[in-house]
């Protein structure tokens, strides 16, 4: 079957989709967007988290056909999404773009993908050491970004609850907590 939907603001079309395919599979294997990760495919790890019409969901549990006509935001579109939110919010997060530039990681090794403009939560994950193998990172970023959108000043218990659907096997979560606290702090400083 054919499926049409919007991903990160761009209309996308996938053909010859098998009816049992998940949104995750279509994103990864048909649309060249492998950022959403395939760790469990049973809704038990959160690494495939995307926004579906604004709401964080496990894309492995969305049938591809269910995405028809919907809007999807993946980790690949997170920086744009945050930028638009900052603009749309009429200056409440005013200078986040400039700030983001100011936070650019030092160290200039290869493999850096330098030049990419990052959302505050992406930058905070790098700065706080919240990334190790990184396989859980895209899903955590989408979930954390959405929480900060709803709840700009979360308590630690709020952060833990909001991220309780995202497994990480490397970090023991401490640096992830640091990263979200950092992103929240920078976000509120930006006001």
């Amino acid at each position: 079957m054919r499926v049409n939907f919007t991903v990160n603001g761009r209309p996308q079309q996938a053909d010859d989709v098998w009816e049992g395919e998940s949104l995750l599979y279509v994103l990864r294997e048909r649309l060249g967007l492998p950022g959403s990760k395939n760790a469990c495919e049973q809704g038990e790890c959160g690494s495939c988290t995307v926004r579906l019409d604004g709401v964080p969901v496990c894309s492995c549990l969305v049938a591809a056909g269910q995405a028809e006509g919907r809007e999807v935001v993946t980790v690949e579109g997170l920086a744009d999404h945050a930028r638009q939110r900052a603009r749309g919010a009429g200056g409440t997060c005013g200078t986040s773009l400039d700030e983001a530039k100011g936070w650019t990681a030092d160290g200039t090794d290869s493999q850096t993908g330098e030049g990419a403009e990052l959302s505050p939560v992406q930058q905070a994950f790098i700065d706080a050491g919240a990334v190790q193998c990184g396989f859980c990172t895209p899903g955590l970023l989408v979930a954390a970004d959405e929480m900060l959108e709803r709840r700009p000043n979360p308590s630690d218990a709020d952060i833990r609850e909001a991220l309780s659907g995202n497994l990480c096997r490397c970090t023991g979560y401490e640096k992830i907590m640091d990263a979200v606290r950092l992103a929240a702090a920078r976000q509120s400083e930006g006001v």
């Binding site: 809704g43 038990e44 959160g46 709401v55 964080p56 969901v57 549990l61 979930a143 909001a162 659907g165």
Partner: peptide, 9 residues
Amino acid sequence: VASPQIRNR
């Protein structure tokens, strides 16, 4: 129920 992502769905 499960996780925030599942509760959204």
